[in-house]
Design a protein around this nucleic acid. Structure first.
Lengths: 173, 173
DNA sequence: CTGATGTTTCAATAAATTTTGAACTGAGGC
DNA sequence: GCCTCAGTTCAAAATTTATTGAAACATCAG
């Protein structure tokens, strides 16, 4: 958006200037963006992941920002998200100041982490409420059909909560 | 937002005036809204489904609108969404003008339908692109690590596409 | 056919989410 | 300690998505 004369590269910091995404990279990014969209993950996050995914080695902050052409803030927040969900790893070379990033080995595991973090809290928080709703319906002598529905929902919820910890040990095990 | 004097119910159409949601209904609605949010389903759609889910019999258009206090447009669109994803059924009593709605018997089946409709198109559309990205990487002699990642992604995609039709027969079987 | 009821459509509006960028923080290096 | 670099924060702006409501449409009774 403000390509600063590009050629004045010479002095001081040499303003790296990165290539925009290549067609094959765009294609992959589109795929990840679309899949991420289903889970409400922002475009910029998916793009960062896609870039790391097609790149041969780990990339540092400035490369990510430069190649994707997005703001520092977005890169920072995006990497935070990916870190929090254990979808990227930083490779800190000895004696190097900058961190360099690469995708976690297993995309499958990453997805599980992501899902857990979205679904589990909802299930946990809902637990007492759902029980109350069911009890309520029973007290009020609601239709058997409704009671049945609410019971099933409660059973599901409990079962999901029991199963969840088996999927992947909670962070710190 | 503009309660039309409420008490002037008398004449003509008797302006039904529905109760707002009860606490136990709100609780359930919150749960559905939250779960729906994970998949990017709008609040109003989740609310409609929740209301039908706790209600004893099928509800008609005006009841849904009245009890949720949302616009006609939202109800119409919401029901369309739920219909399209086979999450609600209409029970048309003989000789009755209005349609009345209730949730599909199996919530599980409904969720599968919903997921299919979101994920499948993305997988299908991505298929050729992903293959191209992989071929591209091979031609360019990319790092083995990258090739490996892209291959795995392709295998996943194919497998998912093969498995999908088994989950539930496509609408019209 | 006509009028009334019930539903859908869709442009305008409102609400929610994402992105930006400038100010800030922190960690070394010197 | 002071300065530079690397990265974070967060309020404002941009963008995207959902909701509204008036007008169009459809269906049926008479």
């Amino acid at each position: 958006m403000k390509p600063p004369s590009e050629k004045s590269a010479g002095r001081r910091k040499s303003r790296p200037s990165f290539e925009p995404l290549q067609p094959h990279e765009i294609e992959l990014a589109d795929f990840f963006v679309r899949m991420a969209g289903i889970l409400g993950v922002p475009r910029s996050v998916a793009e960062i992941y896609a870039l790391l995914y097609v790149s041969s080695g780990p990339l540092d902050f400035d490369h990510i920002q430069g190649r994707l052409g997005i703001s520092k803030g977005s890169v920072s927040q995006g990497l935070k998200f990916l870190r929090d969900h254990e979808m990227v790893l930083s490779v800190k070379e000895k004696g190097a100041r900058r961190e360099r990033w690469q995708p976690t080995p297993s995309l499958a595991a990453s997805l599980v982490t992501l899902l857990r973090s979205q679904v589990l809290p909802a299930l946990e928080q809902a637990q007492p409420g759902l029980q109350r709703v069911l009890a309520d319906a029973q007290e009020r002598g609601a239709q058997p059909e409704v009671i049945e529905r609410l019971s099933r929902l409660n059973r599901w919820n409990s079962r999901a909560l029991e199963l969840a910890p088996l999927l992947l040990p909670p962070p710190g095990a």
